[in-house]
Amino acid sequence: MSLALVAKKDFQDASRSRVLWILSVLYVLLISAMVWAFSAFEGLLAGDEAAAAAQQGVSFNLYIFLAGATTLFISATALVVSYKAIAGERESGQIKLLLGLPHSRLDVLLGKVLGRTAVLAVPVLLGFAVALVVAFALGVNVVVTEYAFFALLTVLYALVYVSIVVGVSAMANTTTQATAGAISVFVVLEVLWDLVPTVTLFGYYYVTDQSLPVSPAEYPEWYYVVTRLAPTSAYNVARNAVLPKSASVSIDSSSFLLQDWLGFVVLGVWLVVPLVVGYWRFDAADL
């Protein structure tokens, strides 16, 4: 009850700003453009090249194509929409009105996560809906249930990113700290998480004077286990668990640690842990 009220008010506040409209236009254009681009590429890849690619273990479908764009845009917009969620209200004093009413700090934290996720989810779902019409118009072969699954999975990804950033915002005492924290999180999750294992792996081959495997599929298991722990990879892995399998690299998934459904577990951990830590700090804070 209290949670729903806080979430509703948060969404109401945002929907009165231009953010919701800007994001709606952005996602309608982005997803529609990606569907259009896919229809163009599909034609190019239909011939010998596609067969050659498939032989190297590379398969291709609409969802892997879309995911490349959605991950980047959703992580970035989640950051912009959420980084001030708690820290900004503390700094301005809005939180005194919110917590002056019978809401717990947990209600406020979770209400913010839901409210900000809605601010992101509405434009994203609108974008998917418009892009579906575009797909039909262009004659792209789309299974509607799969497409809907992918849209929902993308909303889950948005929820995870929002909860990470709101968690950081709850840990911060000032908006400056919140900004620094959110940017750091973005750099770590979106850049370093892939970069560090890759550099480590290449460094290992270089130092031990071995040649790089011809196919990335032959990289050691730990490399994939580690990189799959980032939320964006987890989203891609989870996608493979529920939608027609497609990956840029086809790896041996007989190992337990490389099961695709673990992507959902990893997303769940990213959903919960930042909020637990954020709540622990926020609950102890003097406002």
Binding site: K9, R16, S17
Partner: peptide, 29 residues
């Protein structure tokens, strides 16, 4: 804290209203 605030009306110091919401929306909330 919630039980206390359910029975207390507060005009705090150093607050800030939600600029984009109307007066009526504030009171309704």
């Amino acid at each position: 804290p919630e039980a206390v605030r359910r029975r207390v009306g507060i005009l705090p110091d150093g607050y800030h209203v939600y600029d984009r919401l109307t007066g009526r929306q504030h009171v309704q909330f």
